[in-house]
């Protein structure tokens, strides 16, 4: 059984005060493994909040290097990091933010041939991708391995988030059947910040069992009008990605 140290009890005191969280919730986080796909705008922010919350093991996968144009939003990467692999910068910063969290990084492109191995053993998958083909790949793996998948996406001052529980909720393909054409998207740095913090909250709620998840609910953030809206989503009985699991 995972035990909390005296240092843990001090560090996480304020969140253990949350109703339903307690020391048991903290122990659940400490023994959890979270897979973060991408160390960009969404991944760098969600990973910070998962690290400070005390998730025991974070695995971050990204194949990219840091460019100047990333720095308006990818808050883990700084001016001095330009040219470094994003995963190296991520590991260095997260380990300093919370040395008690095990941070594993892999610099690779996620493909059909490696993604099943990469997510093996994870309790949750966090979507920090910037394209739908890779999101669909993660969605399929999440569905097949029955691993919850916390989706986030952004554009300009807009964002979306939902939590997919395979077998129980609509999957990503049920909600977004078609991949939009690839685009060089505009983005204000605060937008992935908003969505990634929501994703981190969902992960922590799922792992600790507190609150009500964004299950079968698509949250829509409109930063321009500063409003949130949610719409109900349903499983598609003919979904090419999850209809088999629905029937099983």
């Amino acid at each position: 059984m995972v035990k909390l140290t005296d240092s843990d009890k001090k560090r996480y005191d304020r969140q253990m005060m949350i109703s339903g969280f307690g020391e048991e919730g903290q122990r659940k986080l400490k023994r959890s493994r979270v897979f973060i796909a991408g160390a960009g705008g969404l991944g760098s922010t969600s990973s910070v909040f998962l690290a400070v919350a005390g998730v025991g093991h974070l695995k971050i996968v990204d194949d990219d290097r840091i460019e100047l144009s990333n720095l308006n939003r990818q808050i883990l990467h700084w001016n001095r990091d330009i040219g470094r692999a994003k995963v190296d910068s991520t590991k260095e910063k997260l380990s300093q933010i919370n040395p008690d969290v095990a941070v594993e990084v892999v610099k690779t492109t996620m493909t059909e041939s490696n993604v099943f191995d990469l997510v093996e053993g994870s309790n949750v998958i966090v979507d920090g991708m910037d394209n739908f083909p890779t999101r669909y790949l993660l969605n399929r793996v999440a569905v097949e391995k029955k691993i919850p998948f916390v989706h986030g996406s952004i554009y300009g001052l807009e964002g979306r988030a939902t939590t997919i529980i395979p077998g129980r909720t609509a999957c990503l393909r049920c909600i977004f059947p078609e991949s939009p054409p690839p685009t060089r998207f505009p983005v204000l740095g605060a937008t992935p910040g908003v969505i990634a913090v929501i994703q981190a909250t969902e992960v922590i709620k799922y792992l600790t069992g507190i609150g009500r998840l964004l299950a079968n609910r698509l949250l829509i953030y409109d930063g321009e009008s500063m409003k949130f809206e949610e719409i109900s989503v349903r499983r598609n009985p003919d979904c090419p990605d999850c209809s088999d699991i629905q029937k099983s």
Binding site: G128, M129, D130, R135, Y155, G159
Partner: peptide, 8 residues
């Protein structure tokens, strides 16, 4: 009508 956004 809601735009599908893909950025991250």
């Amino acid at each position: 009508i809601l735009r599908v956004v893909s950025g991250g």
